[in-house]
Amino acid sequence: MSDRELQGRRIIVTGGASGMGEGLVRALPRRGASIISLDLNEDGGERIAQESGAAFIKVDVTDKASVTNAVDQAVARLGGLDVLIHAAGIAPGAKAEDISLEQWHQAMAVNATGTFLTNQAVFPHLKDRGGAILNFASAAGVKGYPNKAAYAAAKGAVVAWTRSIAVEWGCHNIRVNGIAPAIWTPMYDKTRASMTPEELEAHDAALKAAIPLGGKLGDIARDFVPVVAFFASEGAHFITGQIIPVDGGTLMMR
């Protein structure tokens, strides 16, 4: 594909102040897209957007009024909308028996309700001319995630929601897919830094066994951005309702 395959595409990216969302905000303008980044972190979001040739709007993805207002502002600035990339999410951890009700509600609110609200908010802007929604799913939502059961449950909801609206909204030429990434991020660096040498050795051995391609998490720029760019482009116009693992072969979907 051309490195300008997103020329003229108007895209909203949520979670644009960190991690994979930040990587997309930085990379997609270079591929021709006009980007509005949405995040709760105003300082980081503004800085990254300015550095990348994008714009930023603060949003709380768990709050309907905040989401509707931010999306409407973004669409007005962009002069329309072609794609929503919903990357915002959190992954709190705890043993299943120790998960507090507060942590459960938080995981559901950000990951599942945030997907629901952002997708609903862009629907009026896409229904007359079509477009694309890319939600962030997870292998956790397909096969579970021990010690992060609330996160896994929320991502399971994202998977089911994504497939459901792909059917419902297909008549409007809106395609809806989910990305299930296993990508190296700064947050993952912090996780690694918190491990003892023994834990890190065991962790790396497990990754080597679980990831056929390379034995470690993928790189944002090399492995992740090109896939998302394709699914945000017109080249993917006949693909919907899919969960696309970008993970070196860890999750082989059926």
Rank of each mutant, 00 (worst) to 15 (best):
R175M: 02
A152G: 10
A139N: 14
I174R: 07
G156V: 00
I179S: 05
A140M: 09
F136D: 08
G144R: 14
D128Y: 09
A149G: 09
D128F: 07
W169K: 00
V122N: 02
Y145A: 12
A132R: 13
G131N: 02
E168W: 06
A121E: 02
H125C: 07
K148W: 06
G130Y: 05
K155A: 00
A166F: 04
H125Y: 02
N135I: 00
V142A: 15
R163N: 08
A132I: 00
I179G: 01
G130H: 05
G178W: 10
N173T: 02
A160D: 13
N147F: 15
S138C: 05
C171I: 07
F123H: 11
V176P: 14
G178C: 04
N135C: 01
V159G: 08
A160T: 13
R129Q: 14
G130A: 03
W169F: 12
V176W: 04
A180H: 07
V122T: 03
A150Q: 08
I179L: 15
K148A: 12
S164M: 14
N135D: 14
A157Q: 10
N173Q: 15
A154I: 06
D128V: 09
P181Y: 12
I133L: 07
A132S: 15
I179A: 08
A132D: 00
K127E: 14
D128T: 12
N147E: 13
Y145T: 02
R129P: 09
A182P: 04
G130C: 05
V142H: 13
Y145V: 03
G131W: 00
G131E: 00
I165G: 00
